[in-house]
Amino acid sequence: MPYFMHLGETPRTRHIRFRRPDGTLYREELMGEDGFASDSSLLYHREAPTEVVSAEAAEGAARPQMVANFPLKPRHLRPHELAGKGDLVRDRHVLLGNDDVVMAYAVADTPSPLYRNAIGDELVYIEMGSGRLESVFGTLEVGKGDYVIVPTATTHRWVPADGDTLQAVVFEAAGHVRPPKRYLSQAGQFLENAPYCEMDLRRPEGPLLAEGTDVEVLVRNRDGVTRYVHATHPFDVVGWFGCLYPYAFNIADFSPVTGSLHRPPPVHQTFEGPGFVICSFVPRLFDYHPEAVPVPPFHANVDSDEVLFYADGSFMSRRGTGIGQGSVSLHPAGFIHGPHPGSIEAALGAERTEETAVMLDTYRPLRLGPVAADCEDPDYLSSWRARR
């Protein structure tokens, strides 16, 4: 994150003595990416964050087995049909995934436990509801349409607002999620041609200054989830500064790029991660050439699997297929896809679209999670057949 931030009480510069009112030293913690050769932040704790009372394997926390998308088919998943609520950490329904990214869906009506993902960053898209992300960096209020980026190994928890439910799509990366490099200057500032800028980002407020003893924290690594018990509360941070922290960006603040003729998906790119990109489709003017065909052509992204989460609005190119709000479509590499029968002609002359969707493109094939079969539309493959 190229946006430097300073919050709470800190010393005037890094790595110098910083004392509590009673004269004892605050405990400095350095969080840094890429072997401390990239973004980092310095946090100042009341107590040492390393005091762990116990560590044990968390039961039922193994990553679910996924199966290949074979025979190769497009898929339409309806995660709204999945039963059960819970919290935004332990009750995720894994829909799709590979070694680079896992896509899950969750409906949370209770606060999550304290958690940190030591594998990679998490990008959480809030489909509906409101609440807050609490972390060692402070509090971040979240709501419908927010992308929330949680850096690797950030201790945090998700708390739905009173009487509300958070419905969210979770992308668990195997590395760091960042704005595309082409949007940034050499110094890290968003360029004028970027579809969003620093002013569109919301940062934590706080600090939380939580207290407590024998505090449980779930930590995920590649071998599973470990339950730590910390002697003191990880949120006992009095202040911090740096360029590494959670932040939120609302999809409604994405400024779409339009043209006289169809523009390809890279103009909608919002974030990038190792082996994948995230794009935002938002309400926008259609192509304005007098002979333009507003919907995308039939296409085959030969290097990528393409996933769309249909968040809100009217999805013209998929009309009549059963796809609606909350649907997830998977169009794998090797499958030619595009507008459904009748949608090309219906789009001619249209001036704008009112759809909101989040797209995941991966460079390695996606596998199907164990709940995919429970919410799949079995007739999706035949939805491209013309009705004669």
Rank of each mutant, 00 (worst) to 15 (best):
Y3E: 12
T13D: 07
P21M: 09
L43I: 09
H45M: 13
E47I: 03
P49K: 12
V53E: 15
A55W: 01
P64Y: 12
P74Y: 12
V89H: 02
N98L: 03
Y105A: 13
A108L: 08
P111M: 07
S112Q: 10
I126W: 01
M128S: 15
G131K: 10
E134C: 08
S135Y: 04
V136R: 02
K144F: 00
V177H: 10
L184I: 04
N193A: 13
P204D: 09
E205Y: 00
L208R: 14
R220K: 15
F235L: 08
V238A: 12
G239A: 07
C243H: 11
L244I: 00
L244S: 05
F254D: 04
E272H: 04
G273Q: 04
P274T: 12
G275S: 05
V277Y: 05
V277W: 03
C279S: 15
S280V: 09
R284I: 00
V307L: 02
D312V: 02
M316R: 15
M316Q: 14
G334N: 11
I336Y: 05
I336M: 13
S343K: 10
I344K: 07
A347M: 10
T353D: 08
Y363N: 07
R367S: 04
A373D: 09
D374T: 01
C375T: 06
E376F: 02
P378K: 13
L381W: 02
S383N: 03
